[in-house]
Design a protein around this nucleic acid. Structure first.
Length: 571
RNA sequence: UGGGACGUCGCCAAGCUGGUUAAGGCACGGGGUUUUGAUCCCCGCAUUCGCAGGUUCGAGUCCUGCCGUCCCAGCCA
């Protein structure tokens, strides 16, 4: 729709990346009622780790809603806890967000609002709605009560306003040690919602903040900072995950009692869960810190950096987020759904090449030695605009070990003694002789090719059951290939509270193939560009790959009907 | 046993203020095309909406009760 100069919400909204869901429906209604002129959202990560696929969902939801209703999205770092936050995470988060293809309007920091937040705290104190508590952490915890019992009021709860103010100012001035005092909202210690039992607003932390340096030794809690930060930025809709539902009454209380410039509305949706992996920053941090993976960008990690190195595309991640929808019911998405979205994207865009992971040498006995012919292959079977290439053929070739069986089952369509198979893009060969080594293993195969069956000739029409990939032994370039499997061997690694999730790590989550043989055109394949190794899957050159030491990562396998049959037959 | 929320096909998920045969995707099964056992294309796939009652001419949609699952007792976010 580009025939209109004014992007009317309705038409744009229908094309939103997330389609329609309850949040979209609700905002659309509000827009129709004229409640808002535009929708302003924000993506508010804490810079204490890398973004993962779960964040991707939040990113897509927030950005797509603003986009659908002619607004914009801010990127705001909720950096209220200097003990955990670092600049390097900010850099990584921004990089991931850009990679995903999103542009944020303003780059904000909760720490930018520390002065205002401090004023807000003073405002609460002045109105008798906050007090300085001298109880220690344990006493405060005990006083909070339990889920079924009301809490008890702090002895400091009725401290005079002037005294609260004095104490709070001295907290800020650095007169007290960590934990000596805390600022609390005065709400209701008997509230059934525990968040309303005089929540803590400020705590003393004599810590250097990566942005505000040593200017502060008191820091607002997330609960006190988040909603007000949204209000300061004039966020219209604070879209967040379900666990903050209980906090909404508290955020609303702050907004109601503070002179904030706007009143954001919070809407919660279910966060993403994927099986056979973990999606909590705490757990992902442990995987990194304890060395279970090579880093935040290990291709087995569900982080955006990991997925990127694995060969995922932003398009695949976005279509995945689109597919899973946005609701309030918690769901677990099979890992395979993520993989299929990648396949669907790569199938259309990735060029095809041939590569042999586990080489088996074959000798074409009727092919003249020392001669190099070439096969002309399309780079994509459905998209001819991607061009063609020539692949050298010689007397000695490598084929995949898995493509030959000495004693093959009836449904095995590939090469077997006396059997025929087509070499993709070349011709049909017959296996005449199996050469064994001293230990009885298969050393090489002697085959003969049918000259009449060369691709392009009428004889090529002859049907044979299978087509396999191959590479010229003389021209092949060696490479290291990483094959990845799921990081955990159980669907829900965190299910059992008594067993640490790391106990479920899959010991075979990475298989390194050292001597794969690639067709020559792969020699200078750019890192990050996807490629399909025909019949094997989609691969991507690792950032560490060098011309003299190629490294490819398998992003995802191809769908494999044979594997299913094979598995079923073997029981 | 306090509060908040959720429960529609194996996995997701539409289903607005109750109204003909409960969308769609994935998975799965069957068939076709195919020099990737890939892709692609057809066809099939919930008399039933956690359960039990009730209201109604009519309920997945309203009411009542029950069951199940998740979140909350950080000076984390």
């Amino acid at each position: 729709m580009n025939d209109s100069s004014t992007p009317i919400d309705e038409s744009v909204a229908e094309e939103s990346a997330v389609g329609t869901h309850f949040i979209h429906t609700r905002i659309k209604k509000e827009m129709a009622e004229g409640k808002y002129e535009q929708v302003i959202t924000r993506f508010p990560p804490e810079p204490n780790g890398f973004l993962h696929i779960g964040h991707a969902k939040a990113i897509v939801v927030n950005f797509s809603m603003a986009e659908a209703f002619r607004g914009y999205t801010n990127l705001r770092f909720d950096d209220t806890n200097p003990a955990k936050e670092e600049q390097r995470y900010i850099d990584a988060i921004k990089q991931d967000l850009s990679w995903m293809g999103y542009e944020w309007k303003n780059e904000c920091f909760a720490s930018d609002y520390f002065d205002t937040l401090y004023e807000y705290a003073l405002h609460l104190i002045d109105h008798g709605l906050a007090y300085v508590d001298s109880q220690d952490a344990e006493a405060i915890r005990e006083g909070r009560g339990t889920l079924t019992e009301p809490g008890t009021e702090s002895p400091d709860r009725d401290r005079p306003i002037a005294e609260n103010k004095d104490l709070f100012e001295r907290m800020r001035a650095g007169e007290f040690a960590d934990g000596e005092y805390v600022l609390r909202a005065k709400i209701d210690m008997a509230a059934p919602n525990i968040n309303l039992r005089d929540p803590i607003l400020y705590r003393i932390r004599h810590l250097h903040h990566y942005r505000t340096g040593d200017r502060w030794c008191i820091y607002p809690t997330y609960d006190f900072a988040h909603g007000q930060s949204d209000a300061i930025e004039h966020i219209t809709h604070s879209l967040c995950s379900l666990e903050f539902e209980d906090h909404r009454p508290l955020y609303d209380w702050f907004i109601e009692h503070l002179p904030v410039p706007s009143k954001p509305v919070q809407i919660e949706f279910a966060r993403l869960n994927i099986n056979f992996t973990v999606l909590s920053k705490r757990k992902l941090t442990r995987l990194v810190d304890e060395g279970h993976v090579s880093g935040w960008d290990d291709p087995r990690m569900p982080t955006l950096a990991g997925l990127r190195r694995r060969g995922f595309t932003p398009e695949a991640i976005r279509s995945f987020c689109h597919e899973i929808g946005v609701t309030k019911s918690e769901s677990v998405i099979p890992f395979g759904v993520l993989e299929r979205n990648l396949r669907d994207d790569l199938n259309v865009h990735a060029e095809r090449r041939m590569a042999v992971l586990k080489p088996l040498k074959i000798v074409l006995t009727n092919f003249e030695a020392g001669v190099t012919e070439s096969a002309h292959l399309p780079n994509h079977p459905q998209d001819e605009t991607l061009g063609t290439r020539d692949v050298p053929i010689t007397r000695e070739l490598y084929i995949e070990q898995d493509d030959f069986m000495e004693e093959a089952p009836k449904k095995f369509f590939r090469l077997k003694p006396g059997g025929e198979v087509r070499l993709r893009g070349a011709f049909i060969i017959r296996c005449d002789e199996v050469i064994h080594d001293e230990t009885g293993g298969i050393k090489e195969l002697h085959c003969s090719f049918d000259p009449e069956s060369r691709s392009g000739l009428p004889g090529a029409e002859r049907k044979v059951k299978g087509t396999i990939h191959w590479v010229s032994a003389e021209h092949a370039v060696p490479a290291t290939v990483h094959l990845y499997d799921r990081l955990f061997q159980v669907a829900d690694p965190a299910a059992d509270k008594d067993t640490d999730f790391t106990a479920h790590l899959n010991p075979d989550s990475i298989e390194t193939v050292e001597h794969a043989m690639l067709e020559p055109s792969l020699k200078d394949w750019p890192a990050g560009d996807p490629v399909q190794f025909e019949r094997l899957g989609y691969f991507v050159a690792d950032p560490d790959s060098r011309a003299d030491a190629l490294v490819f990562n398998r992003s995802v396998t191809l769908r494999d009907a044979w594997a299913k049959i094979d598995q079923a037959q073997q029981g």
